[in-house]
């Protein structure tokens, strides 16, 4: 148990570029941030909607807008469903979009297992709201260029991803 980490980079994506994307550079960046409340299903996905609304106005292709929106939505919903509270923060630079979703919650004991399509610990109440296919994390991976999940059981989870714009 304790702390664990999962890192994945899409084949052909330059790890150096991802580092540059994460760090606060001199280049102009647009930042979007929002708090997430655990159990607040009526607002689940509101942060992702906001991110989508902002980046739609930038010169970003609809395909990339969709990838960012789907990944942000899935990550945000997981905080609503499983954690007590959290935040979603997106940073948009000319070369990439970096999103960090942080929560205080139960953490993920086995991240590899959580990444398996179909694996879910969703309760019947959560399923009644349309969640619990066990496809959220796989969906995120299929839409991003870089994914990192750090989790500590009993403390919380940090999920971050990058989508390159070039």
């Amino acid at each position: 148990m304790g702390a664990s980490e999962f890192i994945w980079t899409r084949e052909g994506v330059d790890a150096e570029k991802i580092k540059g994307c994460k760090q606060q550079g001199e280049e102009e960046a647009v930042e979007i941030g929002r708090a997430i409340r655990g159990g607040d299903f009526a607002n689940a996905g509101a942060g992702a909607s906001e991110i989508k609304r902002v980046i739609k106005k930038l010169a970003i292709t609809p395909q990339i807008v969709r990838r960012v929106a789907v990944s942000s939505f899935e990550a945000e919903v997981n905080v609503t469903v499983y954690a007590e509270e959290g935040t979603i923060d997106a940073r948009v630079t000319p070369s990439c979009i970096y999103v960090v979703v942080k929560d205080r919650g139960p953490g993920i004991p086995d991240i590899e297992q959580a990444m398996q399509p179909g694996w879910t610990t969703a309760t019947p109440e959560v399923r009644e709201m349309g969640f619990g296919a066990g496809l959220g994390l796989p969906n995120i991976r299929s839409n991003v260029d870089y994914l990192k999940i750090s989790s500590e059981v009993g403390e919380g989870t940090v999920l971050e991803f990058a989508i390159m714009l070039e």
């Binding site: 299903f41 009526a42 689940a44 996905g45 969709r66 789907v70 939505f73 899935e74 919903v77 709201m129 349309g130 969640f131 619990g132 296919a133 066990g134 496809l135 959220g136 969906n139």
Partner: peptide
């Protein structure tokens, strides 16, 4: 299922569903 719906990448998709929820 929300995550199933989010797998769709087609343009102009229309959804038929039995789940009448805000999600």
């Amino acid at each position: 299922l929300v995550s199933d719906i989010l797998c769709c990448r087609d343009e102009g998709a229309f959804l038929i569903t039995g789940l009448a929820k805000i999600q």
